[in-house]
Design a protein around this nucleic acid. Structure first.
Lengths: 229, 229
DNA sequence: CGACCATTTGATATGGATCAAGCGATGTGG
DNA sequence: CCACATCGCTTGATCCATATCAAATGGTCG
């Protein structure tokens, strides 16, 4: 069994701190008509936003911070389904229940939108319906990519992960990782030690630089892409 | 690199043989309004239905036989995305291109539906739109389950696969596997040898019975479910 | 400063991959 | 009708990537 990060239910901190370190989200083409009608909530680091199995009453959009969705298997192993950065929507479900749980990785602000309102709107407005569908389709695509990651070697997974993260934080070579090594490991289906060793190895071969554990510089993108398979 | 099954582009055989061995498909609640407007095509074993990267002009519904979707990685490894049995729809894409290719595993008949017709219809009819969305959502759920399979041990993957297949062929304990060991291996992210060994082991421990290589009897579902994690 | 985490590093174990035969069906040509 | 090639599958022996177990390091906060 893998060692799990203990989820410490730390008390909510004031929202003022949550927006730190990431620019405000510009209006997205997707969700343009949706995002108007939600309330904005703050969640402190490691606080659960919703739990697996709870009824899916809302869908969410990250304003600041980072959110992870995860699932705990019977024997305690944890699988992380996705990381959501500012601008990403999450929590949209087809069934009545959330199939994963969601937690804030760093203090996060999320826009909360009532599901019933959106689906009702979608019934009349085919554009909204199309947006919802697109959202699900995008998610599908992401998960398919995730499957492709999981059949690869440790190096390839880590390389793929870094490229994925780099792609998302505006095409820079500096990647700020908001999640712990354990989170990365549980996302990639590896152990924390293997993730660490692989990063060390990539650094040793000058493919990346690791100035601090949560900050990574991509020195040789081509090599990473090659490793990615 | 994994050894790949050679895809022999055998010539199309007459459709009469394709329906063998599986009862005709009853009308599904989903797709009720969609399936009326398609043509029915036949594909021989191992014939490609569409290729990765081709423009997604149609979506498909399996009438008889079995279809697999797959992707070949740069180094030759193959990942199978899904197996589609009679009644299942596949090939629905959000983008303009197919992200996987699709081949018939056994001689198959598939209903072919023009994408543009469906999306046009969806624009006016919110029920059709909802059907499309549901279809994508169901697919998303399947792929999420696939991810969960891929982080498990070989035993757990094979057990999970068998349960999945059993669930789909009307809740019987007899599972007829239409796909080869190589297909199963590429679906589960294992080698053909490991799949074979695992099945042998499950048979040795009386969890299953393997009267012929393509036919499996689940003797102890509880044990399988336990192995499934 | 000292306690507590997260992360790295090291030593060893192991599950599954790889390499290599063997086996049983199915089909083909002599 | 039988010898023989072929193909899909199984079985065996060995190797290696990653897990596991254990300890050291380093950063953060009271």
């Amino acid at each position: 069994m893998l060692t799990q990060t203990m989820i410490t239910e730390s008390p909510r901190r004031p929202a003022s701190k949550a927006a730190r370190g990431r620019p405000p989200v510009e209006a997205q083409p997707l969700g343009g008509s949706i995002e108007l009608m939600g309330a904005c909530l703050s969640f402190a680091r490691n606080v659960e936003i919703y739990g697996e199995g709870e009824t899916a009453e809302y869908l969410y959009k990250v304003v600041s911070g980072t959110v992870r969705t995860s699932k705990i298997l019977a024997d305690g192993r944890r699988q992380i389904g996705a990381f959501y950065l500012p601008g990403d929507m999450f929590g949209l479900e087809m069934g009545e229940e959330h199939t994963f749980s969601a937690e804030a990785i760093a203090d996060a602000k999320v826009l909360v939108i009532k599901r019933s309102a959106v689906t009702a709107l979608a019934q009349r407005d085919s554009d909204v319906a199309h947006e919802l569908w697109t959202l699900t389709g995008r998610e599908l695509h992401r998960v398919q990519e995730h499957v492709l990651l999981l059949i690869k070697t440790a190096q390839e997974r880590v390389a793929g992960f870094l490229l994925e993260m780099a792609q998302r934080e505006r095409e820079s070579n500096e990647v700020e990782l908001p999640m712990s090594r354990q989170d990365i490991a549980d996302y990639l289906g590896l152990t924390i030690e293997t993730v660490s060793r692989t990063l060390t190895h990539l650094a040793a071969t000058a493919v990346i630089e690791v100035p601090s554990s949560r900050r990574i510089v991509l020195r040789n993108r081509a090599a990473l892409a090659r490793l990615n398979g």
